[in-house]
Design a protein around this nucleic acid. Structure first.
Lengths: 352, 352
DNA sequence: CACAGGTCGGAGAGCGCTCTCCGACCTGTG
DNA sequence: CACAGGTCGGAGAGCGCTCTCCGACCTGTG
């Protein structure tokens, strides 16, 4: 024990369990037991160990621990992008969209309390997917949350085949026995249809997202079905890609083809913002001439002028639920494959 | 060798280097050398090893490798929030803001190509900080990118003291020998001042962010200095907290105190959106009665009505540079502490 | 008092890799 | 032919932990 600080230096390297054991005068096993609170340990030894920990400034090496316990305290968030390649500008757009941040925020609200960290990985190529699954089987992470992007994606099936605990946010494009959390997108679209018809719209169009995204196709199906029930057999539709520019372009197109349009359902708020721009440019009043309903209830909805009537998407809650579901699955390998579906609500503002 | 697939199963567990060595008929060391491409290996052995790898489906265990190489292929992104606690709703707002996503996108654009994953961690309490630094000293991650939030934050100093490779996005609040990437916030504010004075504004106000955020105080200082040079000794100022609502409130306040105000510089686009709302509510035309300049050039700037004249902030580029800087530092422990400052530009739209 | 049954600390193997060191062999030069 | 110098594969230690197994000791009961 030095007079200066009581610190016991152990050379250049960091103190290990071995060092603590030597200083406390006990075995490595005992130190491990005290640190991890496993089994009763004599109160006197207990104190001697903690004293030695304080004097050395010992911090367990998580890597070494994980190697034997097969638990890492890490969950992987994988953005699976089966169609793009490295340096695809698409990823930039994806991250700038609040969608990504809201998902991360929801996941972290649960994981943070549990002391679990989130490891972000983007996989695009076949090789990256194979490597990811290999790493996960080795326990590189305890489980994985998958954010699926447009297109056919083999990753969900690969994960379930490998027996890796996994949860998707948004249902898989094709049937795969994987856990997921989703929004009742069709119900949300129905709410929009009800609202537009309810305010007396006669010719209602739709600006949709890409048809190969499940959330998008569900919104299309739900909207058309509901409109048909209200007697509107024909719903003109233009497809965008969820960006503001594509919404603006789509609105112009819709307006050119159907000048008497008096209502439009836009599959996300960002495109709705673009639609608003196009309507203003075309000299149409919103909602006077054309009523607009968005989807997501993002911060853009409030910022818009007029403020957007939209469908609320409790994304943070969904992500938090995904985290809880995954943690349950990690602790119980026999958990049956389950899904949790959230109900959307209509938020009425000025645009419709 | 089985007739079915040529796969050699090795029981329940995953194949290890040992299994590959046995099947290839060489030593573990040789397999390791072939897999990692270290030293020349006899072409014949080389082939036998790769054949064995294919037959077993071997994937190296990254954890075990990291334990000895002291390299993990992971970089930590830490959001240091010295003032909040777990479950603070503030974090929700933080993640929903495009700022977070743009930083992640910029980092990943560089890290993805290098096959490095990003591990997200939020630290709030003293204990969490200590544990993080301990884990990092053990090589839990090869380096760390720090996103600092309002307030005095001890983390940067703790990291440099521990010798952990680190880069901040945005300068530290107080002098610390840490690498960082930043925007010339004062220059950006000057550009706004020049523009407002240049279009003939006589009474110009400012809506600022919290003074304890470096980016914010730099914008305040740059703006006041530049206005003074233009002969405007007095600049009324109200402080917001970067949210839209706070911008709206601040604008109302400014207008109440200075009804003849004809120009305003708002320290970020989100608050500028709020200011626009307040001006409309007060019956002022933008830019006719009051000219508005924002900051960030976020997607909200284009969506606003009128579209915002604002200061462009190349955040993705800055984050990408931070990643490069960090990777250089990881490979060269002797690298001198460095900073990279980006120059902002004025983007002229309708609001000023 | 004898002995069954429980409690608790230590020894040592093991997780799956890398890396140093050594020795076998091979080549070229005087 | 002798020997210096280089190349390359294998043995075995080591990274820093956990966990099983065993034996010492302690308690309580018939």
């Amino acid at each position: 024990m030095t007079a200066t600080s009581g610190r016991v230096p152990v050379g250049e390297r960091l103190p290990t369990l071995e060092d603590v054991a030597r200083i406390a005068g006990v075995s490595r096993a005992t130190v491990s037991r005290v640190i991890n609170g496993i089994r009763n340990v004599d109160p006197q030894l207990h104190k001697m160990v903690w004293d030695a920990v304080d004097r050395t400034g010992y911090v367990p090496n998580r890597l070494a621990r994980s190697l034997v316990t097969r638990r890492t305290g890490t969950i992987a968030l994988v953005v699976s992008d089966s169609e793009s390649h490295d340096d695809d500008p698409f990823m930039g757009r994806f991250f700038a969209d609040p969608y990504f941040g809201r998902v991360v925020g929801g996941l972290m609200s649960v994981l943070r309390a549990a002391g679990i960290q989130l490891a972000l990985q983007i996989v695009g190529t076949e090789q990256q997917r194979t490597r990811l699954v290999g790493d996960l089987r080795h326990g590189q992470a305890d489980g994985v949350v998958v954010l699926s992007l447009p297109g056919h994606d083999p990753l969900p099936r690969m994960l379930t085949d490998a027996g890796v605990p996994a949860v998707m946010i948004g249902r898989p494009a094709e049937p795969v026995p994987i856990n997921y959390v989703d929004l009742a997108n069709d119900t949300g679209a129905s709410l929009a249809a009800d609202h537009l018809v309810g305010r007396g719209c006669q010719l209602v169009g739709m600006i949709s997202g890409p048809a190969d995204v499940p959330a998008s196709s569900d919104r299309i199906a739900g909207f058309r079905r509901s409109m048909a029930r209200h007697g509107h057999a024909w719903v003109p539709q233009v497809t965008g890609n969820f960006t503001q520019e594509s919404g603006e372009r789509a609105m112009h197109e819709l307006l050119a083809a159907h000048p008497t349009l008096d209502g439009v359902f836009v599959a996300n708020d960002l495109m709705a913002l673009g639609a608003l721009l196009a309507l203003r440019a075309a000299g149409r009043e919103v909602p006077g001439d054309v009523a607009v309903v968005g989807f997501d209830d993002s911060s853009a909805a409030v910022a818009a002028n007029p403020a957007l009537t939209t469908i609320r998407h409790p994304l943070e809650d969904m992500a938090a639920e995904a985290a809880r579901l995954l943690m349950t699955r990690i602790d119980d390998a026999a958990m049956r494959v389950s899904s949790v579906i959230y109900e959307p609500t209509l938020v009425r503002r000025q645009s419709a």
